[in-house]
Each structure stands twice: as structure tokens, then as C-alpha cells.
């Protein structure tokens, strides 16, 4: 009885949250299209998102590139000893999967937490209410520039991330396994579907991260502790959104490839 009631109330709160998330997503998309925002704000957000995350993405993706190449070369040198294919496969894999997904995981912590912390502290200091009292829709005013900036920057940073990973991977292969750069940097395996899948992934992550973290930020209540909670929730929810989207898009890509 008791557990049943708990389950019902849990389901009800899940439904209201899903509705709210949907409403925010709608507002953001409509606002993004209507383009009625101050010009400087978008530039400022682009700078914020891009500049603050560039080094972070380069370093993490670079190290991941090293690890991946090292592992694959190690495994392959045990099995076949032919390392000529490693570079091509690695780059292909990077483009359609690891580059966008890992970049987005990193941005979910960097940008997602930032958005939630900023909006959350505006909520607890009543600045969001003050925006409403000036006749401004907070979702549109606060979230639309962040949405557009994250959308653009995820794609751009994914490209940088892939480049960094490829460079570090080529370096590792050259240094530890003596694979020449010309053999490693083999772009012939990267086909249009790979690039397309990668771009679709990056754009979906770039859309999901600001919406999910903005939602978490706007739901903040209760002082400085509330802001901390909102930030936490934003990191977890937007990372999870990335993982789920990765799975869904990969599955779709696999299935549509099979049918082709």
C-alpha cells in the first residue's frame, strides 16, 4: 500500500518534470528561431563556452587518443602484428563515436555545471523573478544564448578534440610502436556516413546539454546548498543524456547502415 503510494507520487513527479523539460525545450527552440535577443550576449556566451573549455577538451581528448592507440596497437601486435590498419580505423572510430561523445561528456561537466550554477544562483537571489517583473521570459532571455552557443561550440570543440586525439595518437604510435606518420594518418576509411553520424551526435549533445542543465538550474530552490544540488543534478543529468543519446544514435546509425 505504502510503496504503491510512493510509486504513484514518484510517477506523478516524473511526469511534471518531463512536462516542464518539454516546455523549456519548446521555449528554447522557439526563442532560438525568433531571434529577438541582444547581439552581444550570444558572442559573450560563445566566448564563455568555447574559450573556457578549449584547453580542457584538447587535453582530455589528447590523452584519450594516446590510450586508445596504445591499447589497440598492443592488442594487435599480440594477435597479428600488422599495425598498418590501426590509424585508419582509429580515425574512423574517433569521427563517428569517440570524438563527439567524449567532447560532450567533458562539456556536460564543464558547461552544464556552469549553466546550472549561474542560473541557479540567479534563481535563489530572485534575479529570475526580477527578470519576469521586467516583462522578460527568463527561459528565453537566459537559455537561448547559452543554447545557441553550446550548440555551435560542441560541434567546433568536437572537431578540435578529434584533431588533438589524432595528433596524440599518431605521436604515440610513432614513438612506442614505430608506425610512420604517413601510414597512421590514413583518412581513406572515413566515409560520409561516419562524418554525418559524428555531426548529428555533436549537434544533439550540444542541444541536450544546455536544455537539461538549464532545466536543473531553473528548478533550484533553497539557498547556497540549493545551488550546489542543482549543479550536481545538472552534471549527472546532462552526462546521462549524452550516454543515452550516444546509444540511440549509434543504434540508429547501425540499423540504417545495415538496411542500406
Amino acid at each position: 500500500m505504502k510503496s504503491q503510494r510512493a510509486l504513484t507520487s514518484w510517477a506523478a513527479s516524473l511526469r511534471t518534470q518531463a512536462t516542464q523539460l518539454g516546455q523549456i525545450a519548446m521555449l528554447v527552440c522557439v526563442g532560438a528561431v525568433r531571434a529577438r535577443r541582444p547581439k552581444g550576449e550570444l558572442l559573450r556566451q560563445l566566448y564563455q563556452v568555447g574559450n573556457r573549455s578549449l584547453l580542457f577538451v584538447l587535453v582530455t581528448l589528447g590523452f584519450t587518443g594516446m590510450v586508445l592507440v596504445f591499447q589497440s596497437c598492443l592488442q594487435l601486435s599480440r594477435v597479428t602484428g600488422d599495425l598498418s590498419q590501426v590509424g585508419g580505423e582509429f580515425i574512423k572510430y574517433l569521427v563517428h563515436e569517440f570524438g563527439p561523445s567524449l567532447t560532450a561528456m567533458m562539456l556536460a561537466t564543464r558547461v552544464g555545471a556552469g549553466i546550472a550554477a549561474e542560473i541557479g544562483s540567479m534563481v535563489v537571489t530572485e534575479q529570475v523573478d526580477a527578470l519576469r517583473m521586467c516583462g522578460v521570459e527568463p527561459v528565453e532571455y537566459l537559455l537561448v544564448p547559452r543554447f545557441l552557443a553550446t550548440l555551435a561550440m560542441t560541434l567546433l570543440l568536437a572537431v578540435f578534440g578529434v584533431l588533438s586525439a589524432v595528433m596524440m595518437g599518431a605521436f604515440t604510435a610513432h614513438q612506442t610502436f614505430h608506425v610512420p606518420y604517413s601510414v597512421f594518418l590514413d583518412l581513406s576509411k572515413v566515409k560520409l556516413p561516419d562524418v554525418l553520424t559524428g555531426c548529428i551526435k555533436a549537434l544533439s549533445y550540444g542541444a541536450a546539454i544546455p536544455i537539461v542543465s538549464g532545466f536543473c538550474g531553473l528548478r533550484t530552490h533553497g539557498g547556497s546548498e540549493g545551488v550546489g544540488w542543482a549543479t550536481t543534478r545538472a552534471v549527472v543529468s546532462s552526462s546521462f543524456a549524452v550516454i543515452v543519446l550516444d546509444f540511440l544514435i549509434s543504434a540508429l546509425a547501425l540499423l540504417s547502415w545495415q538496411s542500406m
Binding site: 561537466t109 564543464r110 555545471a113 540549493g226 545551488v227 550546489g228 549543479t231
Partner: peptide, 19 residues
């Protein structure tokens, strides 16, 4: 420094951990 500081620190902590 208050609510803003907490959010900022949480942000820094997750970034440093990921790195």
C-alpha cells in the same frame, strides 16, 4: 563567497576530477 561561490566550486571540482 555565498551561493555563487558554491556553484563555482562544484563546477571546478568536477572539471578537475574529469581532467
Amino acid at each position: 563567497g555565498g551561493a555563487v561561490g558554491v556553484g563555482q566550486s562544484v563546477n571546478d571540482a568536477v572539471v578537475a576530477a574529469a581532467l
